[in-house]
Design a protein around this nucleic acid. Structure first.
Lengths: 216, 216
DNA sequence: AGTTACACGTGATAC
DNA sequence: TGTATCACGTGTAAC
């Protein structure tokens, strides 16, 4: 049977709408006493509270209506999602652009995952080839440039090899781009060991190339 | 009198709960015909639709309940707000941090070790001071410059330390002059480990200075 | 059995 | 005046 309006009386609430009448102690009418009356009451209060909480979390509220609250929440969520999307996009953009000075006409839409195979393919795509240059620029001084695939530890290996060959690093520049690494350096043969004449540039170059190609 | 359950019959819906009975053409009962019956019906449908729409906008839904839908929406809004906050913070941080350089002169923290003092005296002779700069230039990127005494293996040690700290070398420049060495490098914290926020520039700088001062 | 959630129709209330 | 929203108690269905 019917709704609670049976007990409705013009009771004015502090703010809005009616609320259930103050508990009538003596219910002369047939009191069916639905078992879930109080539960339903709690449920309503709960939903009401949740809606109010939702309303408090939404900055722009066009109307106090339940449906409006939910609607505003939906639009607000949409705005937040859009903001998040834009921010992440900007962040990624700002994070990655400093590296890519290269023209964007090249199709490098590849994800910047650092996998050796992908790096090799990337090197092929960008036209970078493995290369070692080594030439004599002084009595004991040499200049070298190494272009190769970027692998972890490759630089340390280079340093070890140069130390093993008896070279002292005068200056060195290292740059990485698109999965490739370029090392250019001026080195000097240690004075105590021998002079520059005992260094065969071709042989040293081949050895360096061999080392760079070998796996760690 | 009471609710619409008066017309309730065990009509099974496709999904959940009961819905009002198919329009009974011949209402033999006293049809009070509340004027707002249909309006209330529309209102209910409207709210129901809004709640469903809200539900569709929230990725994580613990329960199909109305209150749960609203609750999940609240938590989701909270998460979105937090994400937006963090992203804007990082964005601002990324835009502004390049200005502040964490620089430390050796004068500030003096290690009373004999070698350190000797180094300092030696460097003073040539007018070069031991110095470490370390600043954040991106979300995961940092720039650093180290000026110290040129000693054998100091560069390899630097590489090992950076590897140990989880940094990846982006580019590096090394120059030697008058017994001093200058290393400037852009590094990037490994993505798998953590983000740039977990790197304390001041702490990293101090650690680098410590390492550079220690003997091999 | 017991509890929870829902839709229903209605009176009251606000605009 | 109507139109719209609300809280109410209840029957019913699902768990």
């Amino acid at each position: 049977m019917g709704g609670g309006n049976r007990f409705q009386e013009p009771v004015k609430i502090n703010r809005r709408r009616q609320v259930r009448k103050e508990k009538e102690e003596d219910e002369v009418n047939e009191s069916f006493k639905s078992p879930n009356l109080e539960a339903e009451r709690r449920r309503r209060e709960k939903l009401h509270g949740r809606l109010m909480a939702l309303r408090s979390h939404v900055p722009i509220v066009t109307n106090m209506t339940k449906a409006s609250i939910v609607e505003d929440a939906i639009t607000y969520i949409g705005e937040l999602q859009k903001i998040v999307e834009n921010l992440t996009e900007k962040l990624h953009e700002m994070e990655e652009t400093p590296l890519e000075i290269y023209e964007q006409q090249t199709v490098h839409t590849i994800k910047p995952e650092v996998e050796a195979i992908d790096l090799k393919m990337e090197m092929k795509k960008t036209g970078i080839e493995e290369n070692v240059q080594f030439c004599k620029i002084g009595k004991r001084k040499f200049w070298l440039k190494i272009t190769t695939e970027k692998r972890p530890g490759i630089f340390t290996k280079f340093m070890e090899v140069m130390c093993l060959l008896g070279f002292e690093i005068i200056d060195i520049t290292l740059a990485t781009s698109n999965g490739a690494i370029i090392i250019s350096s001026s080195v000097q043969i240690l004075q105590g060991l021998c002079d520059g004449g005992s260094v065969d540039p071709q042989q040293t170059k081949d050895f360096l190339l061999e080392v760079m190609r070998s796996n760690p």
